[in-house]
Design a protein around this nucleic acid. Structure first.
Ligand SMILES: [Mn+2]
Ligand SMILES: [Mn+2]
Ligand SMILES: [Mn+2]
Ligand SMILES: [Mn+2]
Lengths: 221, 221
DNA sequence: TTAATTTTTTAGATTTGTCTAAAATTTATT
DNA sequence: AATAAATTTTAGACAAATCTAAAAAATTAA
């Protein structure tokens, strides 16, 4: 048997899942923006996902995944993140190169494949961007993290996640040698533009509010 | 950019490539049989592949790939066989489990991915069924092998390839402990039904003509 | 509370890949 | 060579996913 849902449907499920994590409920325009498609196409797909009993949807009223839809979405996210981990750890890709490839690999249907891959990789808990990898039952361990704007000054912390994951921000972070696991300290906050001066391996680095908002760290206590 | 050709088109190219290796030129029914589809669907696709300049085709006259079509087909075969190797060597799948999964993985488009995978695997020359893996330029080294029916008696040889690769024959070979690299010797040929008695690790095993025809070996001299 | 604006849905097309049934062509048989 | 059988192609249909333009509904502003 082939895949249970088409790649397109899987992409919709994943996008809706992510959007409802942020906004609680999801709108047609949200999804169209996320998937670079037209609102009319989204509406078409909503009907299909509802007919397949993956989605709670009444027209003009917004929508969200039901239990089954969430379950399916989590398995796709699991595949996406395990493949990203594989690409970085085993094939030595950079973290800003893996997303697009994983966008394709996440649609490979074999469950056995993904469980074997998980084992081969040593059951990693997070992907190369610090995002948690659901286990084969769709569970994940959530880590409590704060963004850099909310990190108290003079407190050593470790980078544990990235919000916006566009190639642009990843390139900037690469340049400033900020990666997952990097230890750093906020030395100064400028009230004028909310920019920060941080210390990384004894080097002083300045980052904008926009960047700071998208870098998450964890620290003791 | 996404894939250059759809999965469907890639499957046709691969099927035509294999069939023309055997028969020189290919017919509509051949392809329909190979791809489990209808002759009318094949004709439809032939027109598209011709329009894309991958195929030499005039109606009612048979067809074959042109240089470009062959090039594309070889890259898909490369991907298929590298993924099969990965599945067996790294994820410990059996050789009779990998074909279907590789049928999906072969359509992942990233060229960089497949070249990195090749490197990660140590540039293997053959897949788990003994078939050669084309390099990134589409070249492969052909090995001269004979099937078991044509192996002289009392001559130690090594299994190097399998003809028919259905799950059924692979299961039979597994059961009789015949795998790639197995060393064996034909001890007796029965003229009555062309069955063979062969010696594997000092054990005597009998195989039918049908099996013998599909087991290829190489030997010195 | 109307009116204007934005969002969402519908109606109708288009593209890709597939199918069945019928027609055209080639191949095999008498 | 004529006929029968097999193969291949065409004609016309359908499902999936997408789009544009227009209509409907909801939201915001006056
Ligand atoms: Mn995807
Ligand atoms: Mn990621
Ligand atoms: Mn395939
Ligand atoms: Mn193989």
């Amino acid at each position: 048997m082939g895949p249970k849902y088409s790649s397109s449907r899987e992409n919709y499920l994943k996008a809706i899942f992510h959007l409802q994590e942020i906004h609680g409920t999801v709108t047609t325009n949200h999804v169209a923006g996320e998937l670079q498609t037209r609102p009319a196409s989204v509406t078409d797909m909503l009907k299909k996902l509802k007919a397949q009993k993956l989605l709670l949807y009444e027209k003009y009223k917004g929508f969200k995944l039901n239990t089954e839809g969430r379950k399916v979405a989590l398995q796709i996210i699991r595949k996406h993140r395990l493949w990203e981990f594989f690409l970085v750890e085993k094939l030595h890709f950079r973290w800003d190169e893996v997303h697009e490839i994983a966008e394709e690999l996440e649609h490979i249907s074999s469950k056995k494949l993904i469980d074997r891959l998980d084992e081969f990789l040593g059951f990693p808990k997070t992907d190369p961007h610090g995002d948690p990898i659901p286990d084969s039952q769709g569970r994940w361990t959530l880590t409590h993290q704060v963004d850099l704007l909310n990190l108290p000054v003079n407190l050593v912390a470790e980078v544990s996640g990235i919000g916006d994951q566009s190639a642009e921000i990843l390139e900037l972070l690469n340049h400033k040698h900020i990666a997952l696991g990097t230890r750093l300290e906020v030395k100064k906050k400028f009230a004028f533009d909310n920019s920060l001066e941080i210390k990384i391996r004894n080097q002083s680095v300045t980052i904008s509010e926009h960047v700071a908002k998208n870098v998450f760290v964890k620290y003791d206590e």
